[in-house]
């Protein structure tokens, strides 16, 4: 290990490594709080990928063309892969996937609230890809340089694969907007529903985000919630204009002085409400995950039992 300041306490040495942008690896010494914060954040991220399969999975069987069906299935499958990379990264910190899933199923662990909103029309597949994945990418790209090595490496892989997700979403929106009036209405209606929840994806305002400061210090996080939210609005408003759609916020206006868009206030009451479990789909999303896990238990057991029998037979034969 590069010992930057041998006379300092382990905590100070650790911080010195972080400040020097040296990655932390699984067996390195780390403060317990750093480990806990990472497990919380990475598992939350993994859970979001897993639960995030459900709203889009909802449209795989109804995709309007074979090409769209293949793309959507491949995309949702990627999310399963991303969940898997992230669970693996968290496992290097000494937790197990089973433990993380148990925390998800009991409601102890959180996942991104965006997935507690329903997907009601085909245009929602456009909005989820374009807006939700767009927001996710803003969050994720800085994580490729996050201080914990396995997390950063998992994110590099995720980001590489994620790049087609937003494009396919935008393409769906573009096709709808260039299509029949009924399709354009579908697109606008979906944007109206998804815009604000997407802004909520960046989390509470910086003033109300107690973990941000420490996470920034540890370089787990590299931008604040409000910084990313502003970046997102600046990116998306012109794209909506290109599509001929209107963002459902009358306060959106270019601010020449700030060189950024002004925008309205997120409905924080709704935000906290959904976080606390009172969104339309909180119950069924979690239920779907619990059910898949419970109904899969006998399959997982059978595979283990069979593997054990094989091993035994091989031992006898040897």
């Amino acid at each position: 290990m590069e010992t930057l300041a041998p006379d300092l306490s382990p905590e100070a040495q650790f911080q010195a490594r972080i400040d020097a942008d040296i990655r932390i690896e699984p067996k390195d010494w780390m403060p317990e709080a750093y480990r806990k914060t990472l497990i919380r954040q990475i598992s939350q991220h993994a859970h979001s990928e897993l639960v995030g399969m459900l709203p889009e999975g909802n449209w795989i069987t109804r995709a309007p063309s074979l090409k769209r069906k293949a793309i959507l299935l491949a995309k949702v499958q990627d999310e399963a892969g991303h969940g898997l990379y992230l669970y693996s990264a968290a496992e290097t910190l000494g937790t197990s996937r089973d433990q993380m899933l148990a925390d998800l199923h009991s409601g102890k662990a959180k996942y991104s609230s965006i997935f507690n909103y329903p997907t009601l029309s085909w245009a929602d597949m456009g909005c989820v890809g374009w807006l939700v994945d767009g927001a996710a990418i803003l969050n994720q790209v800085p994580l490729c340089r996050t201080s914990y090595g396995p997390y950063a490496r998992a994110m590099v892989r995720v980001c590489k694969e994620e790049s087609f997700h937003q494009r396919q979403g935008f393409e769906i929106m573009q096709t709808l907007c260039e299509g029949a009036p009924v399709q354009k209405e579908m697109a606008q209606e979906a944007l109206n529903r998804w815009w604000w929840p997407t802004l909520m994806m960046f989390g509470p305002k910086d003033a109300d985000s107690p973990n941000t400061e420490q996470s920034m210090k540890w370089r787990i996080k590299r931008f604040t919630n409000d910084e990313l939210r502003q970046k997102f609005v600046d990116m998306m408003v012109p794209q909506a204009e290109f599509l001929g759609l209107k963002v459902p916020d009358d306060k959106v206006q270019w601010n020449e002085e700030r060189q950024a868009y002004d925008f309205g206030e997120v409905d924080w009451e709704e935000f906290w409400n959904v976080v606390k479990g009172n969104g339309l789909c909180n119950h069924e999303r979690l239920q779907a995950r619990v059910q898949a896990h419970e109904e899969g238990a006998w399959v997982r057991e059978a595979a283990l039992a069979h593997a054990a029998k094989r091993k035994e037979r091989a031992a006898v034969a040897a």
Partner: peptide, 12 residues
């Protein structure tokens, strides 16, 4: 090394 996964046996 690219990552890890869970499986019941080597073939899986």
């Amino acid at each position: 090394h690219v990552g890890s996964l869970h499986a019941a046996d080597a073939a899986m």
